[in-house]
């Protein structure tokens, strides 16, 4: 065991993992976190806590992760390179480990131009690859990025990374995933999969490179709430690949039934990706629709979650 987290145990025991996601509030409200945690508890093995996603100021990932621990859920703290240099990141990692956080997802981070403080100065001292190396070095070599030894207990994380199989250049994406595994990723959570054939082709190349044996790959999935949301994701979100047939399927569904249809599409994607060699689990991103996770996991046959 690298960190001994529930997620790590589920994956190493060979279970098909299911993780969820919780977006912290844009306030100091704790009630909303308790409410969202309630929607996820028992339905997933770990819950990602986003780190000011889309560069909008939100409650800190570490703070919410600790709240989740208190509520009896296992958090996966997300850490981006946008707002912190290597000094701040390592300091936060020591703190997070001390507070009992065991899963860490390493990201470069959305550019601040997308958020609510577009005039901010960004950091990007490290990129996600270098962040992975640093976290692995802290854990396995007990060394800070500068080379100094960690004197005392080292921060031990089950290390995650993201991958977008749908971004360009497609041919390089499997190699980039291999780089992340080499840099230190123990598990991968992908961009939301809607285009299953393209993901299948990607995974074939990943398996040919043997990357699935170096890290656990969780396919990202998400329910679409409405035709409008489907159209928005298909046309406005960079790096998203929503096939037209899904957009049309949502369009053809009466408005009051669209949410239900969106859940159905999500369940179908889960069932399809589950059959793809090298896929070790799913990461369900039902941001601002956390209450759908119970139904998605039930319909997809992912319940009960294993007790390991």
């Amino acid at each position: 065991m690298k960190a001994g987290s529930n997620l790590e145990k589920v994956l190493t025991a060979g279970y098909f993992a299911a993780t969820g996601e919780l977006g912290p509030p844009q306030s100091a409200d704790t009630a909303v976190i308790e409410k969202k945690a309630g929607y996820l508890k028992g339905y997933v093995d770990a819950v990602n806590i986003t780190d000011c996603q889309t560069a909008v100021v939100r409650m800190s990932s570490m703070a919410v992760a600790v709240m989740l621990l208190r509520l009896g859920l296992e958090p996966t703290m997300q850490m981006t390179c946008r707002d912190r240099n290597r000094i701040a990141i390592q300091s936060d990692l020591l703190g997070a480990a001390a507070l009992g956080i065991k899963n860490l997802l390493c990201l470069t981070g959305d550019h601040q131009v997308f958020g609510n403080h577009p005039t901010a100065k960004n950091v990007f001292d490290l990129d996600s690859m270098q962040l992975l190396s640093m976290v692995k070095g802290l854990r396995d070599d007990r060394r800070f990025q500068c080379g100094d030894e960690v004197k005392g207990p080292e921060p031990r994380f089950f290390i995650g990374a993201a991958a977008n199989p749908f971004a360009d250049p497609f041919d390089f994406r499997p190699y980039r995933l291999a780089k992340k595994a080499k840099a230190g990723a123990d598990f991968i959570q992908t961009q939301i999969v809607f285009n299953v054939p393209k993901f299948r082709e990607y995974m074939k190349r990943v398996v040919d490179l043997g990357v699935h044996e170096q890290c656990y790959i969780l396919a990202g999935v998400a329910p679409i709430k409405s035709f409008g949301a489907a159209r928005y994701m298909a046309t406005k979100v960079p790096g998203m690949d929503v096939p037209d047939e899904i957009v049309q399927r949502m369009k053809a569904t009466p408005k009051e039934k669209q949410a239900e249809e969106g859940i159905k599409v999500c369940v179908e994607v889960i069932q399809q990706v589950r059959e793809i060699p090298g896929v070790a689990g799913v990461h369900i991103m039902a941001i601002e629709w956390e209450e759908s996770v119970a139904e998605i996991t039930a319909q997809a046959g992912l319940l009960p979650r294993p007790a390991v």
């Binding site: 390179c81 946008r82 470069t108 981070g109 550019h111 131009v113 960004n122 990007f124 990129d127 996600s128 690859m129 270098q130 993201a162 991958a163 977008n164 971004a167 360009d168 250049p169 390089f172 980039r176 780089k179 961009q191 960079p238 790096g239």
Partner: peptide, 13 residues
């Protein structure tokens, strides 16, 4: 835009 040394990131399209 992010001065990555290990790009391209997932936003390249």
């Amino acid at each position: 835009s992010k001065s990555l040394l290990n790009g391209p990131c997932g936003g390249s399209q």
